[in-house]
Write a protein that binds this DNA or RNA. Structure first.
Lengths: 105, 105
DNA sequence: GGCGTTGTTCGACGACTATCGAATGACCAT
DNA sequence: ATGGTCATTCGATAGTCGTCGAACAACGCC
């Protein structure tokens, strides 16, 4: 499996799952950074954790329907899933407006 | 102490903590019910859990700054904390609009 | 082809969480 | 005072979560 990862159907994503995914400070920071800039590679998040841990968090975000992964050569590009807005209108906007650290809009 | 419980200062409540409190289906249901009606007693939530478990969840919600407890005779009255709106504007509204089960507004 | 870079998976471990039952405490009514 | 009702606390338990290091796989480059 090199080109796309198991992304869940939006319809199957439940609200508590999304909230749980956002309830970790690191994951919240990642999503905030993603919303601020465009899509980004792995190391762009200055995550103070081991690569394996970061990978784990990405998986959680992916399974919660928040982000997509795409491979670009050796590196992974992550981006927010636009369908999130259709599934849970206003949610992400409301959370991110309150999340610290998306200084550069 | 019998009449008021340890409620945290709103300024000390962090966003991930609130999201985590809301990320449990039962707690989300409780908050939704609370937002729909006014304040309510314990048994009004048809919680399919033991009283001790319910009490635990209430504590989590209280510590996240989401609800207040008040004793009214032998029973406990719970209500949403209005200051939540000031601390995290729009958050609760956004989440509750999406939460299942606040049918009767 | 071989090597370094980059992300993933696996196994492990400690911390936290949700759940319960039983015991305790507060209050009201009798 | 006695008993009943309601919530809290305690101790226990099973499950999940975040974290790590090590091993692995994919890709581009030399």
């Amino acid at each position: 499996m090199q080109e796309h990862y198991p992304h869940p159907e939006m319809a199957e994503v439940q609200l508590p799952e999304v909230l749980h995914a956002l309830s970790d400070p690191l994951r919240l920071r990642i999503v905030a950074a993603l919303a601020a800039g465009e899509e980004r590679g792995w190391g762009d998040f200055e995550a103070p954790v081991a690569p394996s841990t970061l990978s784990h968090h990405m998986k959680v975000l992916r399974q919660a329907g928040l982000v997509t992964h795409r491979r670009e050569g050796t590196r992974c590009i992550v981006a927010l899933r636009p369908e999130m807005e259709a599934r849970f209108p206003g949610l992400l906007a409301a959370v991110l407006r309150l999340a610290p650290g998306q200084s550069a809009a």
